[in-house]
């Protein structure tokens, strides 16, 4: 059986077989980079501020001391990771319903942003918070006390949503 050679190997001459000129070239390059500016960010001191489009942990928008959410349950329905649990209750206000229980399991959340997209009230949005650590499974389930964030702190994302949501 005849076997075709798949790769063609170039013939190297003696100097090339010693690899020395190429190695010298490589060494000068790496020496140059030794003195190049460094990219490292000294993280806990030097923090990174994400843009408005960043998908950090999902939070509930708090407006005038109340949540915007009307407990329609769409977010919990769309969530691909089944991370959200909403239980509705009635209020005395003209806004008829509010979530009496709103929990996001942060171990399940995949930061896809579907909940933000589907919400009719712009009540759940992706924040810029990326520092998430838990010490147990229980503390990883965020309830309303942790999820509610005043509107003023989320201007970046809200502006982004108003500008780009419906294009």
């Amino acid at each position: 059986m005849k076997i075709d050679k798949v790769t063609k190997r170039e013939k190297l001459n003696f100097l090339e077989k010693l690899y020395i000129p190429e190695i010298a070239k490589g060494l000068t390059l790496s020496l140059k980079y030794m003195f190049a500016p460094k990219f490292t960010r000294q993280y806990p001191e030097e923090r990174w501020e994400p843009l408005g489009s960043y998908r950090g942990r999902p939070v509930l928008v708090e407006e005038n001391g109340k949540e915007r959410c009307v407990a329609c349950g769409l977010c919990s329905r769309v969530c691909p990771a089944v991370a959200i649990e909403v239980q509705a209750a009635e209020t005395a206000d003209e806004k008829e319903r509010y979530p009496i229980l709103f929990e996001i399991n942060m171990l399940r959340c995949i930061y896809c942003g579907y909940c933000e997209e589907v919400c009719p009230e712009e009540a759940i949005i992706m924040s810029q918070d990326y520092e998430l650590t838990f010490s147990s499974r229980e503390t990883a389930i965020y309830d309303k006390s942790k999820l509610l964030v005043p509107k003023e702190k989320l201007t970046n994302q809200l502006r982004f949503l108003i500008e780009y949501r419906n294009i």
Partner: peptide
Amino acid sequence: FWVRWTIPRFKYNQLMDLGWKV
């Protein structure tokens, strides 16, 4: 150190070629 962080590893046949033939 400088060489280690510059040059990739040879292939095994290259190593033997280099050793015995060059």
